[in-house]
């Protein structure tokens, strides 16, 4: 039987058609999310998108094309501004150090060089903190689900007072709710359970007090942010590339965005993706977002470190509460 020219033909060769968003009417949602399971269908669908992109681009008028070129060129800053952020050593150092904190938190200091980490902590404690202010960091942890969506599993606040002083408010699925800290001489931990579990010890026994809560004794004494030598210990930090600017909070400063892929590998895991947001005016790493996969490749988490406003150092804040 001869097919009419108006008949588009049998459906079986268009198994991917329900996924094709390019033929939807405005406001219409596709019947399926993502891509079809069969590879051949996926590729046929993507070929549709490829041709769709070419055909759409082909309709560009000369005027529209010129306007677009002018818009792009007008957005280009003076050459002197290019990669200004990356040209400043402190940015790369600070970014590397924050990434290091995340690595140690996830994999433990063993993933790098423990002696180096401990030396760094001493150095930071002695030199890096202005006596009058403490730095506060908010860490949110999201677990990546099998379908790619993310679920928040933890929200932790760290306050670093320098000279060994720190305080952490932990609230997460793994660590539960607890507060821990040190005034530089005594390290302590208190769970938010009924009755509360309380433990304290001299700082030299920090590992015993904090073990099981933070990796390898919880060296989260903070302040790793200025440790330059560690950059050399962290392969990949120098691979961060300028990736535009963005504003985190409405009315807030424009932040420089640095990005990198595959910065650090541990077994089948490591840092899959890193985004560092830098406030150039204040010379501060404002936020670091790391997508980290566990060494066995099984689980993947997104860690977001965000620096909060500095706060005055109050010795009582870091002291054992009981």
């Amino acid at each position: 039987m001869t097919r009419s020219p108006a008949d588009p033909g049998p459906d079986e060769t268009l198994r991917w058609a329900d996924w094709d968003e390019t033929v939807l009417e405005p406001g219409e949602e596709p019947a399926h999310d993502g891509l079809p399971a069969e590879r051949a269908d996926r590729e046929a669908l993507l070929d549709q998108r490829l041709v769709h992109g070419l055909l759409t681009m082909l309709q560009d008028s000369r005027e529209a094309r010129e306007a677009r070129v002018r818009r792009i060129v007008a957005a280009i800053p003076a050459r002197a501004d290019r990669r200004r952020a990356l040209a400043r050593p402190w940015v790369a150092l600070a970014a590397a150090a924050v990434i290091l904190v995340a690595l140690a938190l996830v994999f433990g200091p063993r993933s790098m060089d423990r002696l180096q980490v401990e030396a760094m902590l001493r150095e930071v404690a002695e030199h890096s903190f202005p006596a009058a202010s403490a730095r506060e960091f908010l860490l949110t942890v999201r677990m990546v689900q099998p379908d790619g969506t993310e679920r928040q599993t933890g929200r932790h606040v760290f306050v670093c007072g320098g000279h060994g002083r720190f305080r952490a408010e932990l609230d997460g699925e793994i660590v539960g709710r607890q507060t821990l800290g040190s005034d530089g001489e005594t390290v302590w931990r208190e769970s938010h359970t009924e009755p509360p579990e309380r433990i304290s010890a001299p700082l030299r026994d920090a590992r015993r007090v904090l073990g099981g809560v933070l990796p390898d004794g919880g060296f989260f004494g903070c302040g790793h942010l200025e440790v330059g030598r560690l950059l050399e210990r962290l392969p990949g930090a120098e691979q961060l590339e300028y990736a535009g600017t963005e504003v985190l909070d409405e009315g807030g400063p424009e932040l420089v965005r640095l990005e990198g892929e595959g910065l650090f590998t541990v077994g089948e895991g490591g840092i899959e993706h890193a985004v560092v947001l830098v406030d150039e005016e204040r010379e501060l790493v404002e936020q670091v977002e790391l997508r980290i996969r566990a060494p066995d490749g099984s689980r993947c988490f997104v860690f977001v470190f965000r620096e909060q406003s500095p706060r005055p150092v109050d010795p009582a804040f870091f002291a054992r509460p009981w």
């Binding site: 769709h52 992109g53 070419l54 560009d60 280009i76």
Partner: peptide, 21 residues
């Protein structure tokens, strides 16, 4: 800057086609 503008003019079409895909 002028050289870059030429590069933009020559290459924006195919990059845009990719993005539209």
């Amino acid at each position: 800057r002028e050289l870059f503008e030429i590069l933009v003019r020559e290459n924006q079409g195919l990059v845009r086609a990719f993005l539209l895909s």
